[in-house]
């Protein structure tokens, strides 16, 4: 069954890329691998017939957020010696061992999940998931929908507080 193979491939690529995000010593490479992870996730959503989530995954994460990421990394202009990542070379055996254990665990989990998924997810889903999501979001899950907006307001307040120019402490009594 080709779909199943596609699942496996996407899972493996996503996990491998995620691992490279952590392991690569160049932050730009890390960001690039993160984009790859996001795209693979979008592919997995697509295979699950969740076209809307897949599109959002590409537009918001792989597109907007990652571009912002790359901007920040390039503006910071980190030089090689300023990169704070530890050097893994002296720990090579342990890294290999850990990675092996990790992959065995992940493989086993993937296998179980996929085998279950065959029973859980029907291959045929309603063709247009967007109205379905919209209706659920504004009826059954109305409260979480509103709470997310509160959360965003708080995040904006926090961002503004970090970004704003600090007044000198002597003058703050009158300001």
């Amino acid at each position: 069954m080709p779909v199943s193979i596609l699942y496996y491939a996407l899972f493996v690529i996503a996990l491998g890329a995620a691992l490279m995000v952590v392991l690569s010593r160049n932050t730009v490479y890390s960001a690039a691998f993160l984009i790859l992870t996001m795209l693979c996730l979008a592919g997995i959503f697509l295979l699950m017939h969740q076209e809307f989530v897949a599109a959002i995954q590409v537009i918001v994460y792989a597109g907007a957020i990652m571009v912002l990421f790359l901007f920040v990394i390039m503006l910071l202009n980190l030089r090689e010696r300023e990169i704070l990542l530890p050097d893994f070379r002296s720990l090579r055996i342990w890294v290999v061992l850990l990675v092996l254990v990790f992959f065995v665990q992940v493989g086993a989990t993937c296998f179980i999940v996929l085998r279950q998924m065959r029973d859980v997810y029907p291959p045929e889903l309603p063709p247009d998931t967007i109205p379905l999501i919209a209706k659920t979001l504004l009826t059954k899950y109305l409260l979480p929908f509103e709470l997310v907006s509160v959360l965003l307001v708080i995040a904006i307040i926090g961002a503004a507080m970090i970004a704003r120019h600090d007044e000198p402490a002597e003058h703050s009594d009158s300001s």
Partner: peptide, 22 residues
């Protein structure tokens, strides 16, 4: 409900992160 619970917890935590660094 778990999603509400998660979001409430995040509203709480996010406010506290900012207040900690205020």
């Amino acid at each position: 409900e778990l999603i509400t619970l998660l979001l409430s917890l995040e509203i709480l935590s996010l406010s506290l992160y900012i207040l900690t660094g205020i």
